[in-house]
Nucleic acid binder design. Structure first.
Lengths: 260, 260
DNA sequence: TCTCCTCCTCCCGCTGAATGGAAGAGCCGT
DNA sequence: ACGGCTCTTCCATTCAGCGGGAGGAGGAGA
């Protein structure tokens, strides 16, 4: 939408600039931003200046660029995720203290699972998720739950699209995945032994607000015979959280179907 | 910077749209957004559509507009506030469990104190702060600490500017405020009995990263003779948190001086 | 049922803000 | 001193953004 050769709107470019930052790259030089965002340096400089003027970005004493506090404020003040996290945190805490393994909460964002909250157990099995981190829908237990209850259009798109694979156990074939999604819906939870890491089992249940699945709460436990036993407390916690979310809040946490 | 009569860039308008949302207005109709952002309806519609395309905004089944999850992700993934909150939360928790009153963490953002974390005590005295909420620098205890250690340019601007007043005890005169800031620096904490609400006393200490004040940790306790006694545990918690923040992290949480 | 109102989307011609190559200034290590 | 990096500034070009207004959809009231 811009008069540039590649035809992009200012907002697209601004998002690309914000996207240049990540957990491993919180502080970037202007040219690093330019390279990561694939934008001409002059354009990057102008946009960064403008965004910094509004506090979306910040520049330290060395003129390095970082995400601004205002960005956090705008996102936090009115985000539906905030309600969800606050409501979920106590139930996640209870669950975490009972089962003693990593507990996490994921929502559907684009065509992936976005993890919005996590409680880690010291010395637990490997856990690749992190707050504000993403995992493919077909590979993670939370992703399977979200995918199983997603709008048809999104589910079909993901099923047809390329499916990520972490281990030999990852569900990366359409028919197998399709069958498992039906099983997840029937059984009420997703059970993923070794799907992401061979030593870990992911289990996840749907979290509903007024009947609609808005998130998935999950556990990461050791991949052994006892893994199944964690499904019952997890399901209970999921039902409790769903009950707490339903009926009261005017705000709906939407499961976005629209892609990029 | 835009060709519109009022001369604003696209980014300015986008921020104005995001600013239309708040804790009391998380879900808005398009025309409400248009009115709050003071933008023509057609312009608002176009920008909202574009922003929703990138997940910065979302639209529910009734076409109502709300903040998108992507917004939260972009802010959370790389924000310096994230580090600060995560590091602070355990010390705040300890403090909270020892003193049994509301505990909060504020940073300097623009010309105000922005509260980024809070632990509330059930049945505690009134506490007007909320997460992602703001208070004037001269009125709140956290604000006084931040102002006392702010760059000269910012401090002088605030001192000269209009000073908010909540109660007769609010420091709303330049000379009184100036003297108190010196006292805050000397004494090491801010003590604000009845400055915001006559029943409550705010106390706050600086939180430093590598010597630089990056935040203020505060308590809200009853406004009585015992209030002073809370200053010592608070100072201790502040020193512990500062020590935990210093020396390790590569990221600096910048105290923005530039205004809007 | 009809009217009135508000809500929203789409159309479309105008125009000046955004663009990005290039020039130049600064900084560092060799 | 020099090559290689950084970043800022300049400026002619031009198309993305603009927003008034038409028109459709939906809901409340009569």
């Amino acid at each position: 939408m811009a008069r540039s050769p590649d035809g992009e709107s200012v907002i697209t470019r601004a998002v690309r600039i914000l996207d240049a930052f990540g957990p491993e790259s919180t502080v970037l030089s202007l040219s690093e931003v330019s390279r990561r965002a694939r934008l001409p340096l002059a354009t990057t400089a102008r946009l960064v200046k403008e965004m910094a003027r509004h506090g979306l970005l910040d520049r330290d004493e060395r003129r390095q660029v970082l995400i601004g506090t205002r960005m956090w404020e705008l996102a936090e003040r009115a985000s539906p995720v905030k309600d969800l996290r606050e409501a979920a945190l106590q139930y996640m805490g209870d669950l975490h203290s009972v089962v003693g393994h990593s507990t996490q909460l994921g929502v559907l964002e684009g065509d992936e699972a976005l993890f919005v909250e996590r409680l880690t157990a010291p010395g637990s099995v490997v856990n690749v998720t992190r707050i504000a981190g993403r995992l493919p829908l077909n590979a993670s237990s939370a992703g399977l739950v979200l995918l199983a209850h997603a709008p048809d259009e999104l589910r079909e798109r993901v099923l047809r699209g390329p499916l990520a694979s972490y281990t030999p156990h990852t569900l990366s074939e359409e028919q197998v995945l399709r069958a498992e999604l039906a099983e997840v819906r029937r059984r009420g939870f997703a059970f993923c032994p070794g799907h992401i890491h061979s030593d870990a089992t992911g289990i996840a249940v749907p979290v509903r607000r007024d009947g609609r699945v808005v998130a998935a709460m999950g556990l990461v436990v050791p991949n052994d015979d006892t893994a199944w036993t964690f499904s019952r407390p997890l399901m209970l916690a999921g039902l409790s959280l769903s009950r707490a979310l339903s009926g009261t809040g005017p705000t709906q946490a939407p499961a976005r179907a629209a892609g990029g």
